[in-house]
Structure formats: structure tokens, C-alpha cells
């Protein structure tokens, strides 16, 4: 039971991070990003290919996943979201199509079998009767650090406050001299980074698998607190964390 509780609590931080990425774009751009699952999958495959297949250093690969995520996010905004600006339905549908395209692209490159990812940090820590892997601990600490960093970014930086302003009232933000287009671009780049980061630190917990494109759409979109289709007491215990962060600690939506 202790094992389940500890694991649930640790993993919930990671799920919170995933959920925040989803709600961030929804708050700022008012867009339901159905390709969000693709961010996680791309992050996982970048890690798999460069760290495991090519043997590059893990910190470098994590940085590459972030850069790759940012690039894809910016391209997606420029090529798909911006031309369809003002038509939320069209943007949502196009993100759904993009999710399927990315999934198929990954299957073409890596085949559809799950890829086992090695842990970033190996080792085990025993607390009472419970066993905690350093990898899960690192994932939890990293996610809380990223989460804290994101909070500070939004609260303390000009860009973060501009994002908040756009999420509250776009027209009002324009009057105050903020360019919503630029803010949206930054947000799209940022959430891809978050998504890729999440998948990167998700290593070992779940294999890289193209099918997660769809899973994550359901998982994040529904604000559910299950773990990738798995349902056990651990996730129930960690669930409130995830749910609270995904829905109430939504950084901008004050309604």
C-alpha cells in the first residue's frame, strides 16, 4: 500500500505538468490542442533515437528534445494555427488531423512496436517496505522544478504576464501594447517544450509507443486522473494532485 501511495504521489507531479501544458494553450489561445499527445510521443522518440540508438549523452538529448519540440511547436503555429486564426473549430480539427499524421509518421520511421526506454538515472531507494527508483524520483523532482519555473515565469517575467493578459482578455491586451500573435507563438513553442520534456522524463515508466498520441489526447483532454489507461490505487492516490493542478491551478483561467 505504501508503495502504491508513494508511487502515485510522485507520478502525479508529472501528470500535473502534462495537464498544465494542455491547459496553457487552451487558456492563451482558446484552442483545444488535440495533437498534444504527439508532443509526448516526439519527446520519447527523440530520446530513444539519440540517447539509445546513437548513444549521445542524455543531458544533450534532453536539450535536443526541447529544441525539437520548440521547433515543431513554432512550425505548427505558423503553418496551421495562424492561417486558421479566428476559426477555433478549424484549428481543433486540424490539430486532430496533425495528431494522426504525426502518429503515422512515427510508425513509418520506427514501426509500431513499443520501444523500451532506459532510465535516465538508475538505482533504487528503499523507504520502509516501499521501493522507489531514482528515475521516478528524478521525474517527480524535475516536474516540480519545471512547474515552479513555469509559475515564476508567468508571475515574474514580462512575457509571462503578457501571456496571462492575453488569456484574460485578448482585446484588452492589444490595447496595452501586447502582441497576441507573438504571445501565442511563444506559448505554442513553450508547450511543445513542456510536452517533450515530460516524455523525456517519462523514460522507463512507459515505453515509447505511437499509440500514445491518441491516449494522451484523451488523457489530457478529459482532465482525467488515470495513468495512461492504467487504473490502480496509486493513481487514485496521486489523482487529486493531478486533477487539482490540471483544473484549478490552471495558471490563467480565472473564470
Amino acid at each position: 500500500m505504501l508503495q502504491i501511495l508513494i508511487q502515485g504521489l510522485l507520478l502525479s507531479g508529472l501528470y500535473a505538468l502534462i495537464a498544465v501544458g494542455f491547459t496553457l494553450i487552451f487558456s492563451v489561445g482558446r484552442v483545444l490542442n488535440l495533437a498534444y499527445g504527439a508532443y509526448l510521443v516526439i519527446g520519447g522518440y527523440v530520446y530513444f533515437y539519440f540517447a539509445q540508438s546513437l548513444g549521445l549523452p542524455k543531458p544533450l538529448v534532453m536539450a535536443m528534445a526541447v529544441v525539437c519540440g520548440c521547433l515543431v511547436g513554432v512550425l505548427k503555429y505558423r503553418l496551421i494555427v495562424k492561417p486558421l486564426k479566428g476559426n477555433h473549430v478549424a484549428v481543433e480539427i486540424s490539430t486532430l488531423i496533425l495528431a494522426v499524421v504525426i502518429q503515422a509518421g512515427i510508425v513509418l520511421l520506427f514501426k509500431d512496436s513499443p520501444k523500451i526506454l532506459h532510465p535516465i538515472v538508475s538505482g533504487v531507494w528503499r523507504v520502509g517496505g516501499a521501493t522507489i527508483t531514482f528515475n521516478i524520483l528524478t521525474a517527480a523532482v524535475s516536474s516540480w522544478l519545471i512547474f515552479g519555473g513555469l509559475y515564476l515565469f508567468v508571475r515574474k517575467t514580462h512575457t509571462g504576464r503578457a501571456m496571462e493578459a492575453v488569456s484574460m482578455d485578448t482585446k484588452g491586451a492589444v490595447i496595452s501594447g501586447i502582441r497576441p500573435d507573438r504571445i501565442n507563438l511563444i506559448t505554442w513553442g513553450y508547450i511543445w517544450r513542456l510536452g517533450c520534456n515530460c516524455r523525456g522524463i517519462f523514460c522507463e515508466l512507459y515505453p515509447a509507443f505511437p499509440g500514445y498520441v491518441g491516449c494522451a489526447v484523451n488523457h489530457c483532454g478529459c482532465g482525467g486522473y488515470r495513468g495512461w489507461y492504467r487504473f490502480d490505487l496509486g493513481y487514485l492516490a496521486g489523482g487529486p494532485y493531478y486533477w487539482i493542478h490540471g483544473n484549478y491551478f490552471n495558471l490563467f483561467d480565472r473564470r
Partner: peptide
């Protein structure tokens, strides 16, 4: 033969939808 078909299929759908909604 597999799910990879959706890459071309989805790309065509995306292009058509973007340019002629």
C-alpha cells in the same frame, strides 16, 4: 500497408482542409 498510410492520407486531408475548408 499499415497505419503509415495515414501519413499521406492525413497530409492530403490537412492540405485540402487548410486551403479549402
Amino acid at each position: 500497408p499499415g497505419v503509415e498510410r495515414y501519413l499521406i492520407y492525413g497530409s492530403i486531408a490537412l492540405i485540402v482542409y487548410m486551403f479549402k475548408p
